[in-house]
Design a protein around this nucleic acid. Sequence first.
DNA 1: GGAATAGTGTCTATGAGACACTATAAC
DNA 2: GTTATAGTGTCTCATAGACACTATTCC
Lengths: 229, 229
Amino acid sequence: MSLTVDLVVLTVRDDRLHVLLIERGKEPFRGKTALPGGFVRSREDSDAAALRELAEETGLDGRTLHLEQLRSYTRPDRDPRGRVVSVAYLALAPDLPLPVAGTDARRARWTPVADLGPGDLAFDHARILADGLERARAKLEYTTLATAFCPPTFTITELRRVYEVVWGVSLDARNFHRKVVNADDFLVATGTRRVPDVGRPAALYRAGGATVLYPPMLRAAAQHPVART
Amino acid sequence: MSLTVDLVVLTVRDDRLHVLLIERGKEPFRGKTALPGGFVRSREDSDAAALRELAEETGLDGRTLHLEQLRSYTRPDRDPRGRVVSVAYLALAPDLPLPVAGTDARRARWTPVADLGPGDLAFDHARILADGLERARAKLEYTTLATAFCPPTFTITELRRVYEVVWGVSLDARNFHRKVVNADDFLVATGTRRVPDVGRPAALYRAGGATVLYPPMLRAAAQHPVART
DNA sequence: GGAATAGTGTCTATGAGACACTATAAC
DNA sequence: GTTATAGTGTCTCATAGACACTATTCC
């Protein structure tokens, strides 16, 4: 029995949600699109393997990203090579340029999640991706994880775009602004501003110390438009 | 490399949160207390193994319980026998009598979670239990999972006790009552009542079709007693 | 009637959601 | 001054939380 890690690496780029995909260089599924990942070595745990594969296949440094275990996939027939159990990880990244270095990094690319069709991914990676997306969407509600999609300093508009793009909704800019600046230790004002090519400069913030978001950002309200009368 | 499942089976009994533990009959950790579990067979996935081990070791039927994958534990040194990866599952059960049948069932027993000391569990099972508890506590907030601790029909007081015991707080009976009966499809009145030995009979409900709880039952408010002024 | 538990109503404070205009900067 | 984006205030409604008494049943 073998153990692998598979990585769902998400980012927001050009107002669309993207996932990092590679083109497989080896059988099975050679030439097919897949999540980055690889075998866990005998002396490492899956966390270490996830960090290593992230660096090897994509050039990203997982220590600077949000990286968490998602769940494991154990169906005996999920890999034609035999029994291969995969521990999936979810990583959230700001819109970083992909370093071209590294052995396999040339094949890594950001792909808009919405552009993927049903059979586009190898193995059971479509399912893993779906689980990762659902985890990310859910955690935006109750945690401060949205900042993991942002660079070290960011504007409130950028943060709002994260919510809008990941959830596929549009949010009222005024209510959002009020909510995030009032939330406990979610944002810390840096006192600096970003001067854009055009338009009024925006105040820059960095992530505060909070990990849970209170009060939560309830996506559910959109799903339950009328609460009951 | 081997694959095992470990089960965190929780219930509420006598107003205390209990976890199902076994006494190990084999090395390593023979005679020591541990979570129930065992090796995944070559033709089954971990979900099937979790169901099978639950039946074998505890006599419980996982199909009638809430059973979900928790996460995996992959540290190379977590089992003295060598590399053993464990997929942990979380199960929530009503206060069932433990069937005494089955090969190992005689050693399974409910143990109050609060009575466990730091070194009481074999392997890394203390960590797995802690992760399972945190998952259960978190999911009570945003899902209708509390009903998984209740029998098929239950009273609102029983449901409130679940929250109180799992979270270790006390909740206002009036506010709780209003909240759960107003929540979308959380409870369905059966029209029947339970007549206790003493006291006024209580209306019986069964779980509604909702899986998410909206509005959520915010535990966070207790952790943030003063929201900001 | 006593004991035990179930069930309910109101008030206040806070957050959610709807909604439109002003501020700042580059050109 | 035109263009583009940032930033803000108010009103209404819903929910949270505090709080005490009545209802039902068994004995």
